[in-house]
Structures are given as C-alpha cells and as structure tokens.
C-alpha cells in the first residue's frame, strides 16, 4: 500500500536484506498515514546510524543531524513550532549511548515528541560493536570475550524519570507495532517507543527467533498507569514485556510551561519583532 509518506520513486535503502528496519519504516509510514498526519507537518529529527537513515526514506521534512543529537534538535524544532509533529529517531547507540544525557533530559522536559529507538542491541553502522543495550555475555566484533558491562534498561530509566509514555515493541509483529506507534503519536507529551529489531549482519545472538522467544505482551489486566507495577515490569528481563508499559496523566508539555507561549500561542516564526520595543531596556 502506498502512503502519503512514500516517494514517487522508491529510494534504494542502504539496509541489509532481512533487517528489521524495513518493517519499522513500513509500519511508521502506515501509522502516520492512517492517523491522517499531514506530511507537511511532520519532521523527522534523526541522528546517525543504520536506524537513523530512516529519515532518508520518508517523504516529509527532516533534519538528519549528528550522531546522538536527534533529541536536542527535536526539542528546538517542537519548541519553536508546537504545531509540528516531531519524531526523534535513531538506534540504541545513538539515543542511549552518544545521546544518553539528552535522553534523560528530554524525558524530564516532557517535550511533546515521539522518540522511536531502533534497538538491535548492537552498533550496526560501525560494524558490530556492543551497544548500551547489548546483553551481558554477548560476543561482538570488539568485545571478543563477551560484554561484561551491565546492560542499559531504557524502559526502567524512562519510568523512573516519570516519562509520560513508555512502550516497547518488536519489529517482527507489525500489527502491534503499528498500534503502539499510533498511540505514541496521539499521546500528548514525551513518548518513548523502544523497538526491538534483529540485525541480521552483526547480531547473531538476538535474532528474530530470539526476540520472538524472549518477549511477551502485557495483557489486558495490566494497569500501565501504576508506576511501581510498571517499574517491576521494566525489570523483567528473562522475557521482555512488550506493549505500553507506562503512561501517566502528566499533561503539561515543555512548551506549555514556557513564558514565551503564555500570551502568544503562535509559532515563533509567525511573530513580528519590533526592535524599537527593546529600546526601553536602555533606561538605566
């Protein structure tokens, strides 16, 4: 199915055949389309990595900046024009490694964006080193004896920072992935969607089958507004829970808290500036 976000001529991707990124791209475009998001209003702020190349393959606005810096760029974009739908997207190395500090503070700001992290538990683009989410014991092209560092738990970190929406999905289940992405787009406030996906070239441990065998969906009875219950879920790692793990009623977004938007709701570019009004500051 062709969406509003497809190019007339489908660009050649630089992904390996069988990579989970294809599914994420397809589902994201469909989700945005089904939600009737106007491509003119969408901006993808991406970092650098295999995952971050996704901005190249979506027909809309994009800022494909530096490795690790998609979140501050997205924050600047959304804050300057709150009418835009802003997605900050990249890999696990991009968001949790190089950009780790921004990850923490984007959540604290409750900036109204969708933060999609393609989590393949490896550095794809740089040919197979460990990522922050690599599991202990994983042997890589660089960690020859296996990773012995603790693995980063983005879900637990996000919940502990009281992120307003925290979800985990799997690229192998496109139906659920789409449902989760749609909820994330509709959510007002910061929304994290960590998407497990296999890297067929560099991660021979966490394969499609491995993700399938080591995940399960939270069921209907699970109350995702209960923070402590959500934290407990987040710490389950023998089988990873999928779905919307945590959601809270925090409703004031970053922009809504700013004085710049107190008396004027227009995006910054629509406001006129009169330098003469500044003259009175020189009254001392």
């Amino acid at each position: 199915m062709k969406t509003n976000f497809d190019f007339d001529n489908i660009p050649e991707t630089s992904w390996c055949p069988g990579c989970g990124n294809f599914a994420i791209l397809k589902v994201l475009k469909e989700a945005l389309d089904e939600l009737n998001i106007d491509p003119q209003k969408l901006v993808i702020s991406a970092g650098i990595g295999q995952a971050a190349k996704i901005s190249q393959y979506i027909n809309s606005n994009c800022f494909n900046g530096l490795h690790g810096r998609a979140l501050p760029v997205a924050t600047g974009i959304k804050t300057s024009n709150p009418d835009l739908v802003v997605v900050a997207e990249g890999g696990d190395g991009d968001m949790y490694g190089e950009g780790g500090n921004h990850f923490i503070h984007a959540i604290r700001r409750n900036i109204d964006i969708i933060n999609i992290v393609h989590n393949n538990m490896v550095y794809g683009l740089t040919l197979g080193q460990a990522s922050p989410t690599s599991r202990k014991g994983s042997k890589t092209t660089l960690q020859l004896d296996g990773v012995f560092l603790e693995s980063f738990n983005p879900i637990a970190v996000a919940i502990s920072l009281n992120a307003s929406f925290v979800a985990r999905a799997f690229s192998g289940d496109m139906k659920q992935l789409k449902k989760i992405l749609k909820e994330a787009v509709n959510h007002k406030g910061y929304a994290l969607v960590d998407v497990f996906h296999p890297c067929v070239s560099f991660n021979k441990i966490n394969t499609f089958k491995w993700f399938k065998d080591n995940t399960y969906y939270v069921d209907e009875s699970y109350d995702n507004t209960d923070k402590m219950a959500a934290l407990e879920k987040a710490f389950e790692t023998d089988k990873f829970p999928l779905g919307i793990i945590y959601k809270n009623g925090k409703n004031k977004t970053f922009s809504e808290n700013l004085k710049a938007y107190k008396n004027d709701k227009r995006p910054l570019y629509q406001r006129e500036v009169n330098p003469e009004e500044v003259e009175k500051l020189l009254s001392f």
């Binding site: 530096l66 979140l71 501050p72 924050t75 600047g76 974009i77 921004h102 910054l268």
Partner: peptide
C-alpha cells in the same frame, strides 16, 4: 552539546536562536 544542537532545531523551525 545539547545547547548547540537545540538552537539548530530552533532555527530550522523558524526561530532566531
């Protein structure tokens, strides 16, 4: 690092940052 990247997002979307 955040500051220098944030102002780029801001200019991109029409601010003077």
């Amino acid at each position: 690092i955040s500051a220098i990247n944030m102002i780029q997002g801001a200019w991109y979307a029409g601010a003077r940052a």
